[in-house]
Design a protein around this nucleic acid. Structure first.
Lengths: 174, 174
DNA sequence: CCTTTCATGTAATGGGTTACATGATTCG
DNA sequence: CGAATCATGTAACCCATTACATGAAAGG
């Protein structure tokens, strides 16, 4: 959330919208998580808000990061990495693919492949919008980081699709 | 857990050990999750156990899947895929890399790269143990599925390492 | 006028991790 | 004889999702 607000001040509602795309490719949060968290961040002095006029029944609050919040974000980015546990239900299924009939196996792989192809297309479309944008070449600009992470998404999804194509060949004939 | 037990009957303790490697590459569970879950699976008739002599202060129980359990596993493998939300803290950090000093940025990327290189090496080592194993070529054998998922791990980690190398070049000079 | 979007919150539930708890056997 | 491994459980806590709850403005 600090990363989002550092790019552009937003209301809680906007944050939940923004979580769907770009950032949403690798992190998400529902609004029921966002509002309490904004309150906690504000209590910690990392964000502040001003009231703006809006459509809801309650006051619309636009949040932005404070100097302390930006320092916190920077510290987190540069901090030690902890090993992250991988949890991939699709690969877990493929790990038990030996238990099912050949046709069911091929069908599973085809469906998994389809999902990755869709994601790949979405990444490529997002990446295309940054094509020729001057800021995307400047390392101190958020657009640069967007371009870089999307590039990573494209590359790894492509690798996965190629792997699944290879797997389909392994499962062929049968 | 059904997938693990379908390959080989195990005690709860062994399951938690086995979660560390092979399967652990894409799914993990602590023993505090495993024991209650085994009880639930047994109540549902998907696994059973017999007592064997062991070292602990309580009775050692060796679990194996029932016919119903295997059917359940097969049904799950072939079932509809739900879109899985991606949560990647490393990419999330990289998405905020524009906020930090050039040297901190390069350092972060180098450390992320190191972690992936390590994982890649582990996958390749695991894959090497299946080299020349006859069962790994047979689509109805667990070794086949192990080989296939490891191959996927190798391919996608390689893509990520290549991406990070590309990123380091983008961050060079500066 | 009805549906969608904007807008913000709370409550209940579920899954997972960490901490608490116990104790026998084996190896150095 | 002390540490590591084998072995199984419960309790507390945290994070995240789903469901509950409200209501104004804008567009078709």
């Amino acid at each position: 959330m600090l990363g989002l607000l550092a790019r552009r001040p937003s209301t809680g509602y906007e944050l939940s919208r923004r979580m769907e795309r770009p950032v949403g490719w690798f992190w998400t949060a529902g609004h029921s998580q966002i509002y309490p968290e904004l309150a906690r961040l504000e209590a910690a002095g990392l964000v502040t808000h001003e009231d703006v006029e809006g459509a809801g029944p309650r006051q619309t609050k636009r949040y932005h990061v404070t100097a302390a919040g930006l320092a916190d974000l920077r510290a987190w980015v540069a901090a030690e990495l902890e090993p992250q546990p991988v949890r991939d239900l699709e690969v877990l299924r493929l790990w038990s693919i030996w238990t099912v009939e050949p046709e069911a196996a091929r069908d599973l792989v085809r469906r998994v492949r389809e999902g990755h192809v869709e994601r790949l297309a979405a990444y490529e479309a997002d990446l295309a919008t940054l094509d020729g944008v001057a800021e995307a070449a400047d390392r101190t600009r958020p657009e640069f980081a967007s371009r870089v992470t999307l590039e990573g998404g494209v590359r790894s999804r492509r690798a996965v699709v190629e792997w699944l194509d290879w797997l389909l060949e392994e499962l062929a004939d049968g």
